[in-house]
Design a protein around this nucleic acid. Structure first.
Lengths: 231, 231
DNA sequence: GAGATGACTCGTGCGATGTACGAGTCATCG
DNA sequence: CGATGACTCGTACATCGCACGAGTCATCTC
């Protein structure tokens, strides 16, 4: 019987190149592959959100049977893990100016991180409960190196990294979830107004209506960096 | 036919007090109520996590039929919303010393927030996608007032609040998810070691093994507060 | 060639889930 | 006494993840 790939992911042999030209029914879909599955899962997640991803729906969109997916993928959780990491690849800072000051590099890395997740809002709610894939680790490594080269003491390095991570995660997750429910936010602010004696301060500052997310993110990040490495 | 409560939650009439003593079968459970449902949902979430909460399981634990729940509650999402907010009530700072300096008040509020969520780890992964209940809003109001009284300019208030929110949410969510998967974390660090040429910096600082979550939270928060309101 | 191997696909079927529907119970009121 | 309305609950259904095992086909071994 088929030996079904074990926990350690063994890629299928790349005999694809040696395949004869697919004379049979050239209109049929290309063969399944982990990459194609992941890419399609990302599409589907973008279209329909976390709850919209079902193995049946994924198979439909791939033109395959449901159970074929399980050859390439362990289970549905695996699909989430792979989709998440695939969306978080980092291409590095713009190379126009090579060695800028470290603050700009950190800001770029983190703003890009946030942007990548907001491009796929499901990723924000997914990241917290999932494993750290290679792309995520690469980003952490790069961040770590930059901070270290910037002179952050080794003893403070972990605190600094986690602080930035926390800030970015919180900001992104919050933004992504509020973005989905713009109406809810207005409704919430209205509820506030109705109860204005209990929530007068946040009602007055229109906390829930403030729409300058990008600006707030940048400003808050600047504050945090000021605290981490006073200029 | 029963008029099933509409969107606006109409509480059941509190005719409970006028009930005759429940002579019939004193061993049966007390009657269903929204409060009892929510409390039991919290128990069940604590025991079995987010995926462990099912309407059937909830009904079982309450000794009721499944569909009876739907009289008191709109749907499963509603249960999550209510459980989440019920867990985030804030009792205020220790009143031993009434008017401390504002930093201490803020730190206490936020550390308590984090602690409340970590006591119920499911709440961390739930908060991002759910509505803001009254308890959550109260906390925001109090935070806002404290910062305002501390002299934070109105123009910076929203940024300050969201920065702190982001930090706390990120820290708590991260902590809660890593806590669940302590082994995974060790495994991840081992993977790092195996690939140490690619991830040398975070491997060296043992980023994924650092266990002083509380200390890191406090230190990072101090950094952020330094940035927000330099002393 | 013949047969074995193993990569890959897929149909069927099971158990679990959220909840719509409508029928049931019972205290209260006019 | 009959009506009302608050509340309970059994049945039923569509949908889900996935276990199982049978099927296809290219390649390898002798």
């Amino acid at each position: 019987m088929a030996a079904k790939r074990s926990g350690a992911r063994s890629k299928r042999s790349q005999r694809v190149s040696e395949r004869l030209q697919p004379v049979q029914e050239p209109r049929s879909e290309p063969p399944l592959s982990r990459e194609r599955i992941v890419a399609t899962a990302v599409e589907l997640l973008d279209d329909r959100g976390v709850d919209g991803l079902t193995m049946r729906g994924l198979a439909d969109r791939l033109g395959s049977g449901v159970m074929s997916l399980y050859w390439h993928v362990d289970n549905k959780e695996d699909v989430f893990d792979l989709a998440l990491d695939s969306v978080l690849e980092y291409r590095g800072p713009p190379q126009i100016v090579e060695s800028q000051d470290w603050r700009e590099e950190v800001v770029h890395l983190l703003e890009d991180w946030r942007a990548s997740m907001l491009r796929h809002p499901w990723s924000a709610s997914l990241l917290p409960r999932r494993a750290l894939g290679p792309n995520i680790l690469s980003r952490l490594e790069l961040l770590s190196m930059t901070l270290s080269r910037a002179g952050v003491a080794d003893a403070d390095l972990n605190v600094a990294i986690w602080s930035l991570w926390n800030y970015v995660m919180g900001a992104t997750i919050t933004r992504a979830s509020f973005d989905v429910s713009d109406d809810d936010r207005a409704a919430a602010q209205q509820r506030l107004t109705r109860l204005s004696e209990r929530y007068s301060t946040i009602e007055r500052s229109r906390l829930l209506l403030d729409n300058d997310w990008d600006g707030a993110f940048r400003k808050g990040l600047a504050f945090l960096l000021d605290g981490l490495a006073p200029r």
